[in-house]
Design a binder for these strands. Structure first.
Ligand code: MN
Ligand code: MN
Ligand code: ZN
Ligand code: ZN
Lengths: 136, 136
DNA sequence: GGATACTTTAAAATCATTCTAAATAGATTG
DNA sequence: CAATCTATTTAGAATGATTTTAAAGTATCC
């Protein structure tokens, strides 16, 4: 279903070599909607699709995609690194029970970032995490 | 120097048994200013003070203090759990180079938390992390 | 003081992630 | 289209934070 021509374009533009593994993962990630994946969750998805791929390859691929600016890293959640295909500046709901992330529409959050940064420092990124749980 | 009578009160009120280890750690943590510690950093501090204590005890103690509401857990930073003696609702600067956290005065941040929570969920906590780095 | 439950501890286990080193497969060039 | 060069994949070992185990020690209560 996924048109891997787009992925190939993307990889070329990013200066990454075209390996079957990267193309397969690229197709999975950069389809329609934005996604939040960990190496582990992505590896499981790949296995379910009947493909065999070393977990280390999934880690390598995600890191390469990140370095190339194709993925954003989300502040570690539950000791797990999450990669986000939504590259825009945005915030997250975190379901504390499942670890699932959901994007928050930026228009709903306004931060009066007056706080003076420590002298000689600059902001690299900023993220609000709203931890939610099933109502009691 | 630290008045461990306060710590003893605190532990009693929290329903925690009075062990030397807990009293020692309580004295370290609940002195004057607010602190951010990891199990590892606290353990190192304890060793520097010439005390011997199992790292597992430090972990146990921090978790007990947290369960008793004496400490807050900060969203994991660099794969490390940080405990915060500042129990008020507040946000952090994170020095991405050192992992050091600094409190942000709440008055400087305003969040229009209009985002509709997923149905049937409630907010457990909310934290803004501003990642900063030395100016280039 | 003695029974009881809770704690401390060293050591092993766990788990996400990274590293190693050898085999494989893209890219480049003649 | 080789030949070559280099990046990538991979299985498995290593790492590092944290948790668990099980035994020995200690606080609390009677
Ligand atoms: Mn880790
Ligand atoms: Mn970990
Ligand atoms: Zn997102
Ligand atoms: Zn703080």
């Amino acid at each position: 279903m996924s048109d891997n021509q787009n992925t190939i374009e993307m990889l070329k533009k990013a200066g990454l070599r075209l390996t079957k593994q990267r193309i397969f993962i690229g197709d999975l990630l950069f389809g329609s909607k934005h996604k939040h994946v960990s190496a582990e969750s992505l590896h499981k998805q790949i296995e379910k699709l009947g493909k065999k791929m070393a977990l280390a390859t999934v880690y390598n691929c995600l890191h390469h995609f990140h370095k190339a600016g194709l993925l954003k890293k989300v502040n570690a959640v539950n000791d797990i690194i999450i990669f986000d295909t939504n590259l825009c500046y945005h915030h997250h709901f975190l379901n504390v029970d499942t670890g699932e992330l959901t994007d928050i529409d930026e228009s709903n959050v306004s931060i009066a970032e007056l706080p003076s940064l420590p002298e000689g420092f600059e902001t690299e990124s900023m993220e609000l995490t709203i931890r939610v749980k099933p109502q009691t």
